[in-house]
Design a protein around this nucleic acid. Structure first.
Lengths: 203, 203
DNA sequence: GTCTATATTGCGATAGAC
DNA sequence: GTCTATCGCAATATAGAC
């Protein structure tokens, strides 16, 4: 991050653009968002955007980075909690609290990934890296619970979230998220009850 | 479907366009697909498209309908199988067999839903209807297994599939689908073993 | 009914004044 | 460093010949 602020002087317009981009790209989608939309949201004149970003793709990349840092912050906060079960349940809670936003626009990471995965440029790998961060963190929690199949469980957990986010968005029904979060919480409880090395059943 | 072929005479160009659209929209995404792309795939001159569809959105709608009919065919085939467990497992099998395509382009229904849900036009409701068909079918299977929580289970199953499709696509790794399909199969087995009215645990 | 040529629009990107 | 004016292009859509 040391030289991500290159121009200096300006009162963080670059950061404002990246943050505004992250939000607008989430609500409107990448392809349907124009530079004018982002500039307006960041309160920056359109033409001036090109002083900070040479292309639209570079701005999208900056938005992905900004979103990645937001997620890193969330993970850091979760890591304050004492046990892996607490941390995973706190994550579920965060998902449930965001249900209204998810019903309107889907999961920010997931919808970005879905859209960018159809493109040949490097943007698809950037969002994959963000997704990987979350996956690795979840795997660490399951490993700390003593599960030999921590990796599989991590994929199952994140997949369940991404899938219910999509359905919550498709049917515009925030309660779908609440119900699935409850189910996943009982699932984590059942894993803890069984204890380590029981890697057979689904849960 | 009676008057979905209105012009007559022409050797099914309308159907060819809708089928080609369904495929190209899946691989390229809606916004990044031009009418020229679809026309080329259907081997129809660009300008001629407008004889069959007044706008691009109408062609997208026809593509969604075509995809919906494909899914109806799949469901009809599954319903030939004797037990709900057989039918659900056959569905899992179909998903696993499509894993290479999913790794490249994601689930056709899911990626369409993700993209169209950000739009205000009626297209988002059309793809929701397709998703609903699959959900209702799955619910019927669980209900037939005697589960009181059939609806929740149906959402959990489809969400798991949509989520792992997204991850399979994001990481370009078809094996993720294989692993999750195996897990879901064990889950369905465990539901059958427990029998009806056991609606407590995750699985 | 089929196809070509073209009108129209909207957006990414640039030039250059301040 | 900041902003305005504008270029160039791609894509939807239309007009109209065959």
């Amino acid at each position: 991050m040391t030289d991500s602020t290159k121009g200096r002087r300006g009162s963080g317009k670059r950061e404002r653009l990246a943050a505004a981009a992250a939000e607008v790209l989430h609500t409107q989608g990448v392809d349907r968002t124009t530079l004018a939309d982002i500039a307006r949201a960041a309160d920056v004149p359109v033409g001036n955007v090109y002083y900070y970003f040479k292309t639209k793709d570079q701005l999208v990349e900056a938005a992905i980075d900004a979103h990645g840092r937001t997620l890193d912050g969330l993970i850091t906060a979760l890591d304050e909690l004492p046990t892996p079960e607490d941390r995973l349940k706190a994550l579920l809670n965060g998902w449930a609290e965001q249900r209204e936003l998810t019903a309107q626009y889907g999961c920010p990471t997931g919808t970005l990934a879905s859209e960018l995965d159809k493109r040949a440029d490097g943007l698809d790998r950037s969002i994959a890296a963000v997704m990987r961060t979350l996956l690795d963190w979840a795997e660490r929690q399951f490993a700390e619970m003593g599960r030999a199949d921590a990796r599989e469980l991590a994929f199952a957990l994140i997949a369940a979230y991404q899938g219910i986010s999509l359905l919550t968005n498709t049917f515009r029904d925030p309660e779908l998220m609440t119900i699935e979060a409850g189910r996943l919480e009982r699932w984590i409880d059942s894993l803890a009850r069984k204890g380590p090395e029981d890697d057979d059943a689904r849960s």
